[in-house]
């Protein structure tokens, strides 16, 4: 099953199990540009698979109002770049409703979106913007790498009583993997060890998990045994899993596709420094994109997107000291 088909299966499963679940967004009744919602309108009708105008800010607010009134909306924002339009709603309404109401309101909203570069889509359709979201108390943020996690984390997100942003990656949509049918829920906030190793820990999420695994294979040929942790959820973050690994390896590299400056990797690095400075045998290294918009031109975009080579270089840097 492909990653996007797994997302589709999770949506269909949730809609079958709970009549409060509705899917909203631009073109969702037609399946969307990546077919994530294909077939849902046919099975559940257009009352529950709701096409919306290109009004991201307001539609996000509509989903919040529906969520706090009794529905469980799964809102699709077609590209994470457009989440910028909905940030006011996410940050000022969804994230704070439970808190500001003294616990009276709940916003069981899922915002599905996808990000990432590599498709020659230009600077407004290729970004990785999770850092904007992880800085807001009240939101949960999920970035699955595998199809099984894309489905399982989405199932958990729909069941969660809080607003959860699920960030898929467009370059992963058509990877094929085995996914159990029906979908099995994967708990939010639990990282996964994707590869065991002794010498260095690489923490990655979304597409960079695959780059980290490839880097680990290459490093193995150099005699370096890397452990790879797929964070899966950024908020709440499974710091225990990372600390457990670092306690064995003493070295840490954090890798993401987002711009390095102000990226979530800085948060992980800082948290590990604070909690386990005496375990570290070298400074934590960060891998992320350079501080530019995503370029359109092919050679430039290929150079922009961080991957295996950058991760290998970062790992070697931890081994110098």
């Amino acid at each position: 099953m492909t990653y996007v088909k797994a997302v589709n299966a999770a949506l269909a499963g949730a809609m079958r199990a709970d009549p409060r679940v509705v899917v909203m967004g631009e073109d969702v009744a037609e399946g969307g540009p990546y077919t994530a919602t294909a077939g849902l309108a046919e099975e559940f009708g257009r009352q529950r698979v709701i096409d919306t105008p290109i009004s991201e800010a307001t539609v996000c607010g509509v989903a919040i109002g529906a969520a706090q009134s009794g529905l469980r909306p799964v809102l699709e924002i077609m590209y994470i770049d457009f989440v910028a339009l909905a940030l006011d709603q996410l940050v000022n309404q969804a994230a704070k409703a439970h808190f500001m109401s003294g616990g009276q309101l709940r916003v069981p909203l899922v915002l599905r979106t996808q990000g990432g570069a590599g498709h020659r889509s230009g600077a407004q359709h290729s970004q990785s913007l999770e850092s904007w979201l992880v800085h807001t108390p009240g939101l949960k943020v999920v970035m699955p790498a595998r199809a099984v996690d894309a489905a399982g984390l989405l199932a958990s997100a729909i069941a969660d009583p809080n607003p959860v942003v699920v960030i898929e990656h467009k370059a992963l949509y058509f990877r094929r993997e085995d996914v159990p049918d029906p979908v099995e829920a994967v708990p939010l906030g639990v990282a996964r060890t994707a590869r065991n190793g002794r010498d260095v820990t690489i923490v990655a999420f979304s597409r960079l998990v695959y780059e980290a695994l490839e880097a680990a294979e290459q490093l193995a040929s150099e005699g370096i045994d890397a452990e790879v942790i797929d964070a899966r959820t950024l908020v709440p973050f499974d710091l225990e899993a990372v600390l457990g690994s670092v306690s064995r390896t003493g070295r840490l590299v954090v890798a993401h596709e987002a711009v390095r400056q102000g990226g979530f990797g800085a948060e992980i690095a800082s948290a590990v420094h604070e909690a386990a400075f005496d375990l570290l045998r070298a400074p934590v290294q960060r891998v992320g994109a350079r501080f530019t918009p995503v370029p359109f031109s092919g050679p430039l975009e290929d150079a922009y997107v961080p991957g295996r080579a950058e991760i290998c270089a970062a790992v070697r840097a931890t081994l110098v000291s």
Binding site: A57, T58, V59, C60, G61, V62, A63, I64, G65, A66, A67, Q68, S69, G70, L71, P73, D88, Q89, N92, Q93, A97, S101, L105
Partner: peptide, 21 residues
């Protein structure tokens, strides 16, 4: 169901509540 300090910010939420009804 809500009061907002961001002017106009919860007009969409009212649409969502009406949609739910």
């Amino acid at each position: 169901m809500g009061a907002t300090g961001v002017v106009g910010g919860n007009i969409p939420l009212a649409v969502g509540s009406a949609m739910t009804a």
